[in-house]
Amino acid sequence: MNKIINLEKFNFHIYIIAAYTKGPVKIGFSHHPPSRLKEIQTGNPDKLRLCGSLSFNKKIEVELIEKIIHSHLKDNNLHSRGEWFNIGVKTALSILQTFPLCRENLFSGIEIKKGKIINTIDLIQYGLQKNIINDDEYHLLNEVFFLEEDNCQFNDFTINT
Rank of each mutant, 00 (worst) to 15 (best):
K58Q: 04
S108Y: 00
E66Y: 15
W84K: 14
R81L: 08
E104W: 09
G115Q: 03
I68G: 00
P100M: 01
R49S: 12
E61Y: 10
K58A: 11
V89D: 14
S80K: 10
N142V: 07
S71K: 08
S71E: 13
R103W: 02
D135C: 00
I121H: 11
T120Y: 03
H139N: 15
K67C: 03
N86G: 03
S53Y: 06
N142H: 09
Q97P: 05
N134M: 00
K67M: 03
L73I: 02
N119Y: 06
E83Y: 11
S80C: 06
I87C: 14
F56L: 08
G115K: 05
I68M: 04
I112G: 08
G82Q: 07
L106P: 01
E66F: 10
L101H: 10
R103Q: 12
E104I: 07
L50C: 05
L93S: 09
E66H: 07
L123T: 12
T120Q: 15
E61R: 11
I118K: 15
S71I: 07
V62C: 14
I133T: 09
R81D: 10
I69P: 00
L54Y: 11
I133S: 00
N77V: 09
L96M: 07
D75N: 05
T91I: 13
I95Y: 13
E83G: 01
I87S: 13
E104T: 14
S71P: 05
V144Q: 05
G109V: 02
T120R: 07
T120E: 09
I112P: 07
L123Y: 13
T91Y: 10
K116P: 13
L73V: 02
E61M: 12
H79Q: 07
G82V: 09
E63A: 04
Q125S: 09
I133N: 02
I132S: 03
V62I: 10
N142M: 05
